[in-house]
């Protein structure tokens, strides 16, 4: 733990608690766009901040199973996949247990593993994760934009189409940033000696 870690950890806990406040929760779940592009990413961010407080012994034992961050990033991808299913969003609204599962799994199974794994990942692993992320945003965005039917029973069609447009915009923006960094910056992190 670095000296500033305690503060990050506290910030993560406060963010998590703030997102769980009923008025905030209802506001961020009132639209599909807010639910997917604000609430879930902020929950992941809370988890990433919380992970800064991981004690050194735990970090070391996790790292022994997390060569180049592969296991952690795989875990985050699988959890992310689950929360991208339209039926998962519906279930989070209609069933309190699913909502609880979301509030626990997004920080702990997406945000925290990404925070612990990304610094260990090299160029290839980062490249794969980023390309898959971009491809997923473009695919989902396109699907939401063109689907004539509502994919979530709780949300309106125009909301779904707005989310589709925003996913396309964000997907292309990340792609542009990535291309920019590939040409003029660096993506790979520092190749740490790692076995």
């Amino acid at each position: 733990m670095k000296p500033s870690a305690g503060r990050w950890c506290l910030a993560g806990a406060l963010l998590w608690a703030a997102l769980a406040l009923p008025p905030v929760r209802h506001a961020l779940e009132s639209a599909m766009t807010l639910h997917m592009l604000v609430q879930i990413p902020l929950l992941a961010l809370a988890g990433a901040w919380l992970a800064q407080g991981t004690p050194r012994w735990l970090e070391r034992s996790l790292a022994a199973w997390n060569h180049r961050g592969i296991s952690g990033l795989l875990l985050a991808s699988l959890a992310g996949l689950a929360w991208m299913l339209p039926l998962a969003l519906d279930a989070a609204l209609n069933d309190p247990w699913t909502e609880l599962a979301k509030f626990l799994s997004v920080p702990l199974l997406i945000g925290a593993p990404v925070a612990l794994s990304w610094p260990r990942a090299g160029f290839v692993v980062r490249g794969i994760v980023l390309l898959e992320l971009i491809a997923t945003m473009l695919r989902l965005g396109w699907l939401y934009l063109i689907s004539p039917e509502r994919l979530c029973s709780n949300y309106l069609l125009d909301d779904q189409q707005r989310l589709g447009r925003m996913l396309l915009v964000i997907g292309f923006a990340v792609l542009l940033i990535l291309v920019w960094k590939l040409m003029w910056g660096h993506v790979g992190g520092h190749a740490t000696h790692d076995d």
């Binding site: 689950a82 039926l87 209609n94 029973s153």
Partner: peptide, 15 residues
Amino acid sequence: VLAVATHGFRAYTSE
């Protein structure tokens, strides 16, 4: 987990 949640990869929407 995904198989259970999607009724064996048959359902992606709650409908």
